[in-house]
């Protein structure tokens, strides 16, 4: 899940088609990996290549929460709001991130750096409340430890 580096160069749809043997979800995942979202024109090209109606692809793309049709930020933060994380105060973490990074939940910040999502379960309830930053899990997060995580994220970005 190394999604930190935005992929460079144009996306090779044919390669993805060949590698995934035309499996739609796997191809959509490849596209999302490259662009950080599913661009409309790429989906149109894909529909033409696999010979399926556009709506079929749109249906799959809107069904899964993983896929986004809007541009996502360079860094993706996910806060678990499942039962275990919720009772341990994940709501506060969401607010904290919102304030600190100027990003609303489910949206991307104006500078296109961060997007914040709430998810229903990340599958590690014993570690709650859980925050996922660019694919990396941070368990037992408190507002204090969150601060260091966010600071690290911000400074890492400045160095680049």
């Amino acid at each position: 899940m190394a999604r930190k580096q935005p992929a460079k160069g144009p996306f090779n749809l044919d390669l993805s088609l060949e590698r995934n043997k035309g499996a739609l979800i796997a191809i959509l995942y490849d596209i999302q990996e490259h662009y950080r979202y599913l661009p409309e024109d790429v989906l149109k090209e894909l529909a033409q290549k696999i010979g399926k109606p556009l709506i079929e692809i749109y249906r799959v793309a809107t069904f899964y929460k993983l896929f986004s049709l809007k541009q996502r930020g360079r860094h993706q933060l996910k806060v678990c709001t499942g039962t275990a994380c919720h009772v341990r105060g994940s709501e506060r973490l969401v607010e904290e991130i919102s304030k600190s990074l100027c990003v609303c939940r489910g949206e991307t910040s104006a500078d296109g750096e961060y997007s914040l999502d709430t998810v229903n379960c990340l599958g590690a309830c014993a570690l709650g409340p859980l925050v996922e930053v660019d694919g990396e899990y941070h368990g037992n997060t408190t507002p204090q430890s969150l601060k260091t995580i966010l600071e690290k994220l911000k400074s890492g970005e400045n160095k680049e």
Binding site: P53, L54, I55, E56, I57, Y58, T62, F63
Partner: peptide, 19 residues
């Protein structure tokens, strides 16, 4: 034609066109 289809899921499932 395949112009319309389902989008979303659960209680936000509805019939729509591409985008």
């Amino acid at each position: 034609a395949g112009a319309i289809g389902y989008t979303g899921r659960g209680d936000s499932r509805r019939i729509s066109t591409f985008f």
